[in-house]
Design a protein around this nucleic acid. Sequence first.
DNA 1: ATTGTTTGCTTAAACGATTAAGCAATTTGC
DNA 2: GCAAATTGCTTAATCGTTTAAGCAAACAAT
Lengths: 361, 361
Amino acid sequence: MIIPINTLVLLKRLSKTIKKLVNKKRTTIKDIANVLNISPAAVSKAMHGDSRISAKTIEAVKDVAKKLNYQPNHLASALRKGKSNLVGVIVPKTNSNFFSSVIQNIEEILNKEGYNIIITQSNESFKKECNNIDALLFTQVDGIIASMANETVDLDYYEKIKSYGIPLILFDRGENNLNVDYIGIDDYQSSHLIIEHLVSQGCKRIAHIGGFKHTRIYNNRIRGYVDAIKKHKLPLDDELLFESSLTIEDGREKMSQLLALKNRPDAVYVAGDYAALGALQVLKENNINIPKDIALVGFGNEPFTAMVSPTISSINQHSGEIGRQAALTFLERVKMPTVKQTLNKIILNAELIVRDSSNIN
Amino acid sequence: MIIPINTLVLLKRLSKTIKKLVNKKRTTIKDIANVLNISPAAVSKAMHGDSRISAKTIEAVKDVAKKLNYQPNHLASALRKGKSNLVGVIVPKTNSNFFSSVIQNIEEILNKEGYNIIITQSNESFKKECNNIDALLFTQVDGIIASMANETVDLDYYEKIKSYGIPLILFDRGENNLNVDYIGIDDYQSSHLIIEHLVSQGCKRIAHIGGFKHTRIYNNRIRGYVDAIKKHKLPLDDELLFESSLTIEDGREKMSQLLALKNRPDAVYVAGDYAALGALQVLKENNINIPKDIALVGFGNEPFTAMVSPTISSINQHSGEIGRQAALTFLERVKMPTVKQTLNKIILNAELIVRDSSNIN
DNA sequence: ATTGTTTGCTTAAACGATTAAGCAATTTGC
DNA sequence: GCAAATTGCTTAATCGTTTAAGCAAACAAT
């Protein structure tokens, strides 16, 4: 028998509960249940619009919830459901336009699906990266989307993520051996784009300041450079190819070495924009005409490439799309948790933005 | 009576539990308890090194925990303890050197104390900021450290944080009316630093491209500019003072307006580096000699100020120290949760980095 | 009239860790 | 030698939510 509750009684119970709350804690579904004289279970179901709860009750629950300023305790539901609705994101640095933009797009997609993201930065340090992974796993994230630090060669910590049975998605800086989803651009093809462009500008002796070979993306860029040079039957000289940490300083260093050569290059393709900036500084300090004496192309399309003078040609990696694909891939994986992860690459096309540093007319 | 367990029995139970785990879930303290034939409570206490648990048991527990690859369920302990050990951080953008560096330092300090941080970006959008706050509160963070979006004037959402009874700490972009802790630099004094410097370089007609007055920091910079100009008895002309969104584009726009004046300034102080960059571009396009014809000073010491040519003088905000102080303030607040929050400002001194754009010799 | 189905809830057991309270057994103090 | 203190655990409740199972009451079908 349902006892009809008149408004007066309801109001009384409401004010009583409110009083309790003032000197106690936050509202729980139990409080709402007490006010309406129903069970907490019914409240929980009403909140989720369960079809077995009457429209009247649902409305009443929502009404009281609002009045009591009810905020669901995420920890409790996460514990019960075995799902935190949190996704960890690990990037080398947030203060790069590329990563910041990737993150923004991941966030946009995942927020819509009820996920929140936890961003951590490794600062290119392997140790920090391990700490980040531990912290994320400790927080019970439902998955991890990561781009590896330059230093990282030991994959044990990433295997640890896999052993937890949660999806791991890599982007930009990935690793084939991990056998997980990967989203990135076609680095090999990007190198071809750059060499084609430089050749079309009349360059005949093209140097490459590359990243470390052990990182896959840089290895691909180097392979692309080598093959494209071969394709055009240009000189492929050891003294024209460097491995670099791709910092501004190292860009300066390697450019200085190139300038010291007897037979200087007439174009330099740098695998990172920061190093390209360092190279640009050295060229300017030495009064080299850019691009007529030496043309310059960077990689990453960092905003400053359009700010410096001359502006630097660079590869746009479509960070937005990478972020979106990473998020979508995670969502797919989460929907089918039983399927074992396999190496699954999504390779996007990159785009060369030609600016003054390589525009010879 | 304690039944002595021989190694064989223990090993048997261990392998049995391991088998269970293979097709089930993660190790819990209950599993460990079963292996050692003690209660889960004892396991929990052993993990925390409770003095009432014998050294033998503690060692045994840790040993089994390692063997079973036990990882504590953070959600469960957080729920029970009413503490998530998560701190939310809200910034307008992560891809600025200032914010990225602040975040890094917050993280460093808080990680040491067992906290993890959740970074969210508002993209200078008020709506996004509100969403971020909701998301963080939903995740049951133990506190929020934030820098407000340019757009934000309505403080209801920040009041909401306060009503949760968790610490709220603001940095850089704050608001007096909220009555919470604030960490920032002395913007008023920074303007004085800049004007003193420009005066010492011989400048006599100094313009200011400022931020929006409704944002406190920009208001302080404007006030500092006005007072310093008055102090040196320089012309304080309406046409020399602008409010701006401080983007590159707006910097260009405002600089063009200054150049259109009959009586041009001989120095421009821009309240943000990006806008200063825009101003620089316009000056160069008009073949104005920097700094001889017009000197330029920015604000924020973004890395590109040292990259462009001429390099731009700017104010270093000591982002690291701001981050550290914000984190430490949070830790203090968390330790004394009963004390009501009050307006408590920590104002750090800023430093002017003089570069080519204002170095007249 | 009898059985079956649907509706609208309740009950109670989880999720995994923590902790107040309690209870033997052992040690210490005098 | 006996009370008091200490040691080393156990028991059971708790955090707030979800959910499987169940149970009346109402309605529908035959």
